[in-house]
Design a protein around this nucleic acid. Structure first.
Lengths: 337, 337
DNA sequence: CTGTTAGCGCTTTCAT
DNA sequence: ATGAAAGCGCTAACAG
C-alpha cells in the first residue's frame, strides 16, 4: 500500500541505508547511485515517513507554538516573525490554539511535548504555577514569547509593559491632560495586565496627579469592553479628557463610544493605547499607540529557541525589546477648562 | 533519561502490554492492576511518546489544517469551528501557515502528509492543478474549507460566492443605485475572486445596468488596496454612488478613503461587501455586508473530514452553506440626481 | 562509498 | 485479564 524506504531500496538495487543517505542529503553517496535512488523515489512516489524518522532519530525538526487566541491580531504578526526564523533554520512549526483558557493551554503544551517537538514557544497570556509545572516536565527547551513569568525562571522575549504604559500616559500628561482614565486589561495577569496598570499609576504619581478609582475600569482586551468602559467614563460628572487603554482593540472601542456619544476624538477626548496592531491605522482618527515590535518578538524568540535546542551558548535568556510611541491623530492637547 | 512504557511496566510489575492497555483505556484490565499502573505512571512522570504510538498504530489522531494567511481574520473564525468539532472527536489539530504563497501551500501539505496526519483541511485560496496533484498523492482524506476546486473532484465546504455577490449588488440596485463600482479580489482565482466579480456583473445585467470598465478596480483583499481603488473612483467625472467590495477589509478601506476625501458614507456613497468579519462592526458607519457562516464552514468541514477518516458514508461531499445579508449603516438609497 | 544490523517506544495479535 | 513477541519505517553506528 504505502511505499517505504525498503521498497525504494529494492527498486534502486541498493540498501536502505543508502536510500536514507540520499533522502538526508548525506554527501557520502556516489552521484550515480544518488541518481538511481532519486529515480526510484520518483517512480514509486515515495514519501518519507516523518513519524518513523522521528522515532529513529529522536528529533522531529518541528517546534510547537501555542497561541492563546488565534483571533487576536497581535499573535498573527508575532507568528510571522517566528516562521521566518524557523524556516531559516529548517524547522517546521505547528501552531496550536489555546482559546485563552488556561486549562487548554496546559493541555496543548502536553500534547505538543508528547508529539516530541524539539522545542516550544509559548505565546502571551499569564504564566501561573500550573504552567510552570507543565514546563518543568519538559526535556526540550521552552521560551516564552510576548510574555514572561514572574519568577524569572523561564527564557522569554517581551517588552517592558510597565514602561510602555508609563510612556503612553506621560505623553498625555505632557500635552496638558490631568484627567486621565484607564481601561485596564486583566489585573490578575502580573506581567502584562497589571504591569500596564502600574505604569499608568506611576506616570500619574510622577506628575503629582491624583489616582482616582472612578477613572479605572477593567476590560478584557476586546472592543466591546472598551466601549463599555468608555460609556461609563462619559457619564461621570467630571469627565476625563483622555483615555489610556491597555491595548489597541479596547482603544478603538473607546473611540467609537466617544463618537457614538456625539463627541470628538481628539478634540474632546484623547485616546492612546499600546500594541500597534494593523487596526490602529484602520480607524478614524488613526490611533496613537505605543508599538510593540511584534515581528521582532517572534523572530528573537525563535532565534533564542534555536540556540537552546542546539545547546549553543546564550548569555541572556530573558530579553526585553524596545517599544516606540507612534504618534497619530487620536491625541491632542487637553481642551481648555 | 526519558521514561518509557517499559520503565512503567517494571515499576508496576506488569508487562508493557498491560501498561499500553491502561494508557489506551482498554477495558480489559482489572481495576486493581489499572490502579497499580496509574500509580507507577504518576510516580515516574511517564508521558506517552506520540511518535512511537503513531508508528506502531499507524494513526496519529491529528489533523492538519493549512491556513493561507494567519493574519486574515476570516480564518481565525473558521479555525474555531474546526477546533470545536475536532475536540469533540478527540482529534488534535495542527495549524500551518502558508503565507498566501502557492509554493508554500504545497510544501506545507507535503510536510503534513509526511507527518502522517490522519486527515487534512485546506483553507481558502485558489486551487490550482499543482494543488490537485499534491492532494492526489495523499492516502488520507482532504477537504477544502472556505474554497472549492473548479473540477469538483475534492470534498469541500464553502458558500456560493457568485450568489453572495449578486445579492449584495442587488441590494444596492434595489435602493436605487445605478452607478455601482466594484473593488474585486484576485480575478485569477475562479472560485472566490472571479465568482464574486461574476455575481456583480450578473446583478448589473439583470437590472439592465451597463457594465463599465472604469467602475472596476482590482484589489488584493487588503485595506490599503481598498483605499487606493476608492481614490480612483472618487476622481472619476461620473463618480459612482455605491461601491461593492469583494471583502470587508477592502470595504473598510473604501469607507475611510471616502471619509478622508470629505464625503460621507452612506449619504454620498454607499459601501457594501462580503464576509462579516468582526471588524465590520468596528468601523463607523458599521458595514453592511453579506455574512459568510465562518464558524459553520469550519465545523461542517471538520465533521465531513471525520466521516471520511472513519470511512463512514457521506452522501454529499461538496457542501454549499447559506449566506445572509447583514444590513447595517453603510448603505442608503442613492442620492437624488 | 555502501551494506548490515540494532534499536527508537509503542501497539497488537496471539497465546495463555 | 495478562504476557510474549513481532513489527511499524527509519536512522545510526559499525564494518568493510
Amino acid at each position: 500500500m504505502t511505499v517505504t524506504i525498503y521498497d525504494v531500496a529494492r527498486e534502486a538495487g541498493v540498501s536502505m541505508a543508502t536510500v536514507s543517505r540520499v533522502v538526508n542529503n548525506n554527501p557520502n553517496v556516489k552521484p550515480q547511485t544518488r541518481k538511481k535512488v532519486l529515480e526510484a523515489i520518483e517512480r514509486l512516489g515515495y514519501r518519507p515517513n516523518a513519524v518513523a524518522r522521528g522515532l529513529a532519530s529522536k528529533k522531529t525538526t518541528t517546534v510547537g507554538v501555542v497561541i492563546p487566541d488565534v483571533s487576536n491580531a497581535i499573535f498573527a504578526e508575532v507568528a510571522r516573525g517566528i516562521e521566518d526564523i524557523a524556516n531559516m533554520y529548517h524547522y517546521n512549526i505547528i501552531l496550536c490554539n489555546a482559546d485563552k483558557r488556561k486549562e487548554k493551554e496546559i493541555r496543548v503544551v502536553n500534547t505538543l511535548l508528547e508529539k516530541q517537538v524539539d522545542g516550544l514557544l509559548f505565546m502571551g497570556g499569564s504564566i501561573t504555577e500550573d504552567h510552570l509545572e507543565a514546563f518543568r516536565t519538559s526535556t526540550v527547551p521552552i521560551v516564552l514569547c510576548s510574555t514572561a513569568d514572574e519568577t524569572g525562571t523561564m527564557p522569554s522575549v517581551d517588552i517592558d509593559h510597565e514602561q510602555a504604559a508609563f510612556d503612553a500616559v506621560s505623553r498625555l500628561i505632557s500635552e496638558g491632560h490631568r484627567k486621565i482614565a484607564m481601561i485596564t486589561g486583566s489585573l490578575q495577569d502580573p506581567t502584562t495586565g497589571y504591569a500596564r496598570f502600574q505604569g499608568y499609576r506611576k506616570a500619574l504619581e510622577k506628575a503629582g496627579l491624583p489616582f482616582r478609582e472612578d477613572y479605572v475600569r477593567a476590560g478584557n482586551y476586546r472592543y466591546e469592553s472598551g466601549m463599555e468602559a468608555t460609556r461609563y467614563f462619559l457619564q461621570l460628572k467630571e469627565r476625563p479628557t483622555a483615555i489610556f487603554a491597555a491595548n489597541d482593540e479596547m482603544a478603538i472601542g473607546a473611540i467609537h463610544a466617544i463618537q457614538d456619544a456625539g463627541l470628538r476624538v481628539p478634540e474632546d477626548i484623547s485616546v492612546i493605547a499600546i500594541d500597534n496592531i494593523r487596526l490602529a491605522e484602520m480607524v478614524r482618527p488613526e490611533l496613537t499607540t505605543v508599538a510593540q515590535p511584534m515581528y521582532d518578538i517572534g523572530a528573537v524568540a525563535m532565534r533564542l529557541l534555536t540556540k537552546l535546542m542546539r545547546k549553543e551558548h546564550v548569555d541572556e535568556t530573558r530579553v526585553i525589546l524596545p517599544h516606540e510611541l507612534k504618534v497619530r491623530r487620536s491625541t491632542a492637547p487637553a481642551p481648555a477648562g
